[in-house]
Design a protein around this nucleic acid. Structure first.
Length: 546
DNA sequence: GCCGTTTTCGGCCCGACTGTTTTCAGTCG
């Protein structure tokens, strides 16, 4: 049975080949479907079995037929015909930055170039000299791009938790240098996607050149690719691309909306605007010559008759239709977090580490923190926090601040003595000893949280579904967040659909740049989680939620 | 190839930047 990821990749291949063949709109149609399939929480086969393929955004008659063919045979005749027409390497030319479908097609049809290696040979043989549209500079650019593409084997997207600290440093540097009034990271970073292709940073500034200079001087910046009057593109030492854009304050909201995306979301918003006789671009919303909105995102959406939409929901999955009807339900946010149910102290923690943890929890105004005192590691070995250290933590409990003793136990079936005494709550996790999914619903002492499950291992989907089903039965929450051991936003959405609450790790022991809490929160928000959907969130006593 | 509270056909986001141009095409986001 082919996986959803493989199906999405297949449709992307079709899109590339259609691009090379010069098709105008079909490539985007196939890419849209590929994106939709990537964000499904269910196997295509299950959706197909229910006859609901057409409910996937971007799937119409023709693509439904191709999905059915793919599920039945693992092949798509249409793709095979395209592959017969276009040499395999020609589509690879699209991967080279600066080359698009037009160039790839021309190289192939006019010069017989059928791949990156042949392109390089053609350049060296001087066969590109005199080709219209390719001067010496362009040829040199293409040549180095081919070399670079070989070296990096395609620019992979970075996990958001990797991009987070560097994004924070860039933002802080721009703010502290006093060259920018407003600084925001837009793009998929702001939408909280699991991976980011680049960082889009928007600033308002009276002096674009100085803002660019401040950014370029950062040690993280390896090379500047281009600099115009309003935009600079640079590559960081870790390979991440960063675009810094300077915009007018009156346009900041429109620019933020525009560059936050997603593409699918913006297409829907723009189409809506057009139908209403309005025009939306990164400078603002206008009716004819009259400018209607632009300074804030709220007024941009309002001008289109829409409630403001949280960035994490802007994926073209029905959020625009919902925002037409009125304000969207509030998503869980940082200030809703009441504590952490599951903190691991490092093996050799001493009293100082405990104090730091508790101090951090109090500083954030948390009402509780759960410290894992004993349990099993992933490879099944028992571990125990030193008793004096744990006792010191528990002693810090007060009526307004509770310290829980947490035991982390491994996968079912529950064994005699599985639930230790003197423990406030259990966290259940898969381990090498018991990697399997629990089947016994008569758990003598159900866990509060199921943690360390994630799609980081191959073929993990079945296991993750099993753990979520178990959590649903016993009323446990599941841990969401960055890294292979936690659930991403797609799985978090699935968990919510199954009626399971989420547990958000808060990174209490991390530094100010620790991505754990903001990224986990973003994943929960992408899943549409509200306060009631998060086990360690709630409305503070005496505080009224807006 | 998809899509529709002004459409089942005629649209499909749009502006910056670059290079090679003498007015623009291609690429990118």
């Amino acid at each position: 049975m082919p996986s959803n990821a493989e199906a999405a990749e297949t449709f992307r291949t079709i899109a590339d080949l259609l691009d090379v063949l010069g098709e105008r709109f079909k490539p985007e149609a196939y890419r849209r479907v590929a994106r939709s399939i990537d964000s499904l929480t269910e196997d295509l086969a299950a959706i197909a079995a229910r006859g609901e393929l057409r409910s996937i955004p971007g799937v119409g008659d023709a693509i439904e037929e191709k999905i059915r063919e793919y599920l039945a045979s693992g092949r798509i005749g249409y793709l095979e015909r395209l592959q017969h027409d276009v040499p395999a390497g020609v589509a690879d030319l699209l991967r080279i930055p600066g080359l698009g479908p037009k160039s790839a097609r021309r190289f192939w049809t006019e010069l017989g170039i059928e791949g990156p290696a042949e392109l390089l040979a053609a350049i060296d043989a001087g066969r590109l000299n005199g080709v219209k549209g390719f001067g010496a500079k362009k040829i040199a650019q293409v040549r180095s791009a081919v070399d670079a593409a070989r070296a990096t084997a395609g620019t992979a997207r970075a996990p958001i938790e990797v991009a987070y600290p560097v994004a924070m440093r860039i933002v802080r540097a721009l703010r502290e240098a006093g060259v920018a009034d407003r600084v925001e990271v837009a793009g998929s970073f702001r939408r909280g996607r699991e991976t980011v292709g680049d960082l889009d940073i928007l600033v308002t500034s009276h002096n674009a050149t100085r803002a660019f200079d401040v950014f370029t001087a950062l040690p993280e910046v390896r090379e500047v690719r281009l600099r115009g009057g309003t935009k600079e593109t640079a590559i960081l030492t870790n390979g991440l691309q960063v675009d810094v854009r300077v915009v007018e304050p009156a346009s900041f909201g429109a620019a933020l909306q525009y560059f936050t995306g997603s593409k699918d979301h913006n297409v829907i918003v723009r189409t809506l605007a057009k139908d209403a006789g309005l025009r939306v671009n990164e400078y603002g919303v206008s009716r004819g010559e009259e400018r209607v909105a632009g300074a804030t995102e709220e007024e941009v959406y309002a001008a289109l008759g829409l409630a403001w939409i949280p960035p994490e929901l802007r994926e073209g999955r029905g959020e625009v239709e919902a925002a037409r009807k009125g304000p969207l339900p509030p998503l869980v946010q940082d200030r809703d977090l009441r504590g952490d149910l599951h903190v691991h102290l490092p093996d050799a923690s001493g009293a100082g580490e405990v104090d730091r943890l508790l101090g951090a929890a109090r500083h954030r105004g948390y009402a509780y923190v759960g410290v894992v005192g004993e349990g099993v590691t992933a490879d099944g070995k028992p571990f125990r926090l030193s008793e004096p250290v744990l006792a010191r933590a528990v002693k810090a409990s007060s009526p307004r601040f509770r310290v829980f003793r947490v035991a982390e136990v491994d996968g079912l079936p529950p064994e005699e003595g599985d639930a230790p005494s003197g423990v406030d709550l259990l966290v259940r996790r898969p381990t090498a000893r018991h990697p399997g999914v629990p089947t016994d619903t008569e758990d003598p002492r159900p866990p509060a949280v199921v943690a360390h499950i994630g799609a980081g291992t191959p073929d993990a989907g079945t296991a993750v579904r099993g753990w979520i089903a178990y959590a649903a039965k016993v009323g446990a929450a599941v841990e969401v967040g960055p890294g292979p051991d936690r659930l991403d936003s797609t799985w978090a959405r699935y968990a919510r659909e199954q009626g399971v609450r989420l547990a958000i790790p808060t990174g209490l022991l991390g530094s100010g740049e620790d991505p754990t809490c903001p990224v986990s929160l973003a994943f929960a928000r992408r899943a549409g989680a509200q306060v009631a959907d998060v086990a360690n969130a709630g409305v503070a006593a005496g505080a009224k939620r807006k």
